[in-house]
Design a protein around this nucleic acid. Sequence first.
DNA 1: AACTCAGGCAACCGCGGGTAT
DNA 2: GATACCCGCGGTTGCCTGAGT
Length: 337
Amino acid sequence: MGHHCCSKHKVKRGLWSPEEDEKLFNYITVHGHACWSTVPREAGLQRCGKSCRLRWMNYLKPDLKRGSFSVEEERVIIDVHRILGNRWAQIAKHLPGRTDNEVKNFWNSCIKKKLIAQGLDPKTHNLMPASRLSAAAAGNNSDELFQSSTTTTVPFTISSLNRGFDRAKGFDKMAIPPALMAPPQSNVALHESTVPAAALSDLHCQDSHVLMSFANASSSSPSLGPMNYAAASSSSFINDQTGNFMDDCVWDGGDMEQHFESLNHIEVVGDDEVVQRKDEVVQVQTCTLGNEKQGLMMEAYCGFDLEMMDSSLLPCGDFYSGGGGGGGSMEQLQWHC
DNA sequence: AACTCAGGCAACCGCGGGTAT
DNA sequence: GATACCCGCGGTTGCCTGAGT
């Protein structure tokens, strides 16, 4: 078949020869690539412009880093993928010298398997239910597995009327958006506080509106980092008067404002503070529930790429909902919070 | 040595968005 | 506004290579 852009010409396909590489490299080095469609003709190549562009971007470009991925790069990929999903080009931007194709291949051939081995769903980065784990272990089709897991999990839904909430316990099963569960060293984490890590393991909260799942991957997943998330005080998310989950959660925060303002049910007011923690300047975001500021805190670490967050939150909604059934945008996540 | 198989990688394909006409 | 073209992206395919038998 071939690209429509080159269907009119007789073009060569398949692997590039060293001679072709040299022609393309020399041409681009001298003339640049203002218009890829003219490059093959002017460079004397029997290729289509698309193919030339791909070859240049993925192989010939001088600043490309070759060789295997470092542990740090792997970590970045996992962290960013947790937030962006399969947006390889965006992920690659966080890895100088790496191409989207390279990142994608590395993910599919290596990281994905590692996550599965750790019992994590590579799509959601959440723990897979035991049933699916055993299916994975049995060698079932992993894609079906992921499909199944994403259609049954709604990881970021909080609503009111948590009739079963046990106030004495102080917390119950909260859904923390995976996008906000990134490891402290790179992205955003909830402030670790009074809730013991063990208590957060495999939490589930159900009420008439919502199933919230909270998977504690801290112990099993080095890639996710230790205790990536923690609930804040017991009153977080809970209306003091009723003990119910709040319908309208307000995120306070300066920089975060622009990144949440597109979400229908999130209102952002500015008021954040900057504190020093170890060597990092940490911006503390306080979540306000209803009219009162509650104890939920977020830390936007200094290295966090807010642009990335900006570009990712909405798609993440679709991503996490698996695209099936509910339409899956953040709007539907009832993050009335 | 020959064969099989799985993993890794490079390239292709189709689609969507942006821009020019 | 409609159409054509170009570019960039993500998904997929197919080839190559090395390990295992």
